[in-house]
Amino acid sequence: MKKYGCLAAVVGGIVLLAIIGFFIATGFYNKAVSYQEDAKTAWSNVESSYQRRNDLIGNLVKTVQGAADFERTTLKEVIDARSKATAVSIDPTNITPEQLQQFQQAQSGLTSALSRLLVTVERYPDLKANENFLQLQAQLEGTENRINVERNRYNEAVGQYNKHIKTFFGRFFAGYYDFDEMTRYEADPGSEEAPDVEFDFN
Rank of each mutant, 00 (worst) to 15 (best):
C6R: 15
K40L: 05
I165T: 08
Q51V: 07
Q160S: 13
F169A: 13
G13D: 06
E144C: 02
D69E: 12
L140K: 01
L16F: 13
V197R: 02
I24E: 15
S108V: 11
R116T: 11
A25H: 05
N30Q: 13
G142L: 07
R123P: 04
V61N: 06
N155R: 05
A187S: 13
T120R: 10
R53S: 06
T143A: 12
V46K: 01
R146P: 04
T63F: 00
V10F: 15
I19S: 12
T26Q: 15
K84G: 03
T63A: 11
S191H: 08
L118S: 00
T74L: 04
A9M: 15
A18K: 07
D69L: 09
Y176V: 15
L136D: 02
E71A: 10
A129T: 05
A25M: 09
V121Q: 00
L134W: 06
L60C: 03
E193T: 13
R184S: 12
L100T: 10
A68Y: 09
G5Q: 14
E181T: 15
D69Y: 06
L136G: 04
N155M: 08
P195R: 03
I19R: 11
N132S: 14
V197T: 09
K163C: 07
E141F: 02
G142M: 09
Q99C: 10
F28A: 00
G170R: 00
L7F: 13
I57P: 04
K31V: 12
I20T: 14
Q105M: 08
E77P: 00
I165S: 00
A194R: 02
E37V: 08
E150I: 01
E122L: 08
